[in-house]
């Protein structure tokens, strides 16, 4: 049996719903920290940090590059490296399809961007991980790009900054992903011996094989506030020890307390702190004294930065700074000539 007044009350509700949809999308955001609804412009003005609770929103690799390099200008390098499904891996979906999806979604070849530019007037090689691409997971392509960033820094004797943001090794590439840890750590060993500075910036989240290789090997390991940083993920640990972990476990502040990080930097201050640290780390005398003699002779001492050197045609120039860039490494570089390279692009 229907009651007329019941219907009458329900009717006016619909326009309200309709009105809510009409609000321009993305004008407001909900903070993951304090759960408050905040005006998005305010968050953006604040370097993607919640003005109420200081929660650091996850940002893209490009946003980070723009925020750190002088005048938001940088030259992207190694843009042509991409992942292939060499194991023909298939879980509930094929790895091939996953890769294609993420390429379309992010406009990136893989979960990392390598770029060169200046920070406080100093040439810096930077590699920034992109969480939006398969959780920033590290497969062969990411491993290769990190290694190339290290080799470029080593070759050009310029400091290296890596921004980590990754769930760890990419399972779809099996043991090939695992070996990237060894490959990258070996390259960092060379960099270390040559006294070329390396700053590792750990952001939310940095776990697994990324933490257990390059994230923890910086001359300085610094983190954003409240970032999840660890070897094993909290869920795995909870299953192992059969107890619930406290909220602050494996957060930046917890790691500092346990002596595992040098310090925590808020996003707005990151650039200034980097400039301050690089001033200490970049020492031409130390670099000259420990220049490797055994490796391929490097013609790229810091002094021969060619003014006005044009970027090679194959490189993707993203607002590069003329006069501060130099010729990229020829490819294939002698070091990587024996890499297995699949030249036929199976994705388009």
């Amino acid at each position: 049996m229907e009651i007329a007044w019941f219907k009458k009350i329900r009717k006016p509700k619909q326009p309200v719903e309709h009105k809510r949809i009409q609000v321009p999308e993305g004008l407001w955001v909900k903070c993951n920290g304090c759960k408050e609804i905040i005006y998005k412009k305010e968050v953006l003005r604040n370097a993607n940090v919640c003005p109420k609770c200081n929660y650091h929103f996850r940002i893209s690799a490009r946003e980070r590059l723009s925020a750190l390099f002088d005048d938001a200008r940088y030259q992207e390098v190694d843009t042509d490296i991409y992942s292939v499904d060499s194991l023909k891996f298939r879980d509930v979906k094929s790895y091939r399809d996953r890769l294609r999806e993420y390429r379309e979604k992010t406009g990136l070849n893989d979960a990392i961007i390598n770029a060169r530019g200046t920070i406080g007037g100093l040439q810096v090689m930077m590699a920034v991980m992109e969480y939006g691409f398969m959780g920033g997971s590290m497969g062969s392509a990411v491993g290769e790009k990190v290694t190339r960033a290290i080799e470029r820094a080593l070759d050009e004797r310029i400091p290296l900054v890596i921004i980590c943001c990754s769930g760890g090794a990419r399972m779809q590439e099996g043991v090939l992903s695992l070996m990237q840890m060894a490959k990258i750590s070996a390259a960092l060993g060379k960099l270390h011996e040559a006294r070329v500075p390396y700053i590792s910036i750990l952001t939310d989240p940095t776990t697994g094989g990324v933490t257990a290789s390059f994230a923890m090997l910086g001359d300085l390991n610094i983190a954003e506030p409240k970032a999840l940083i660890g070897f094993a993920g909290p869920r795995v640990i909870e299953q192992t020890i059969r107890e619930k972990l406290p909220e602050e476990f494996q957060r930046s502040e917890f790691l500092v307390e346990h002596g595992m990080l040098d310090f925590i930097v808020e996003r707005r201050e990151m650039r200034d702190i980097l400039i301050r640290c690089l001033k200490f780390l970049m020492n031409a005398e130390a670099l000259a004294a420990f220049a490797p003699t055994s490796a391929a002779p490097s013609s790229t001492a810091g002094s021969d930065l060619v003014p006005g050197a044009a970027a090679s045609g194959s490189e993707n120039v993203a607002s590069s700074q003329p006069g501060r860039t130099r010729e990229p490494l020829p490819f294939p570089s002698p070091l990587v000539a024996r890499n297995k390279i699949t030249s036929s692009p199976e994705v388009s």
Binding site: I81, A141, L335, P345
Partner: peptide
């Protein structure tokens, strides 16, 4: 250094 399989081409 040689470990890993990747492709090289331009997409974007």
């Amino acid at each position: 250094r040689r470990m890993g399989t990747f492709g090289q081409a331009k997409f974007f």
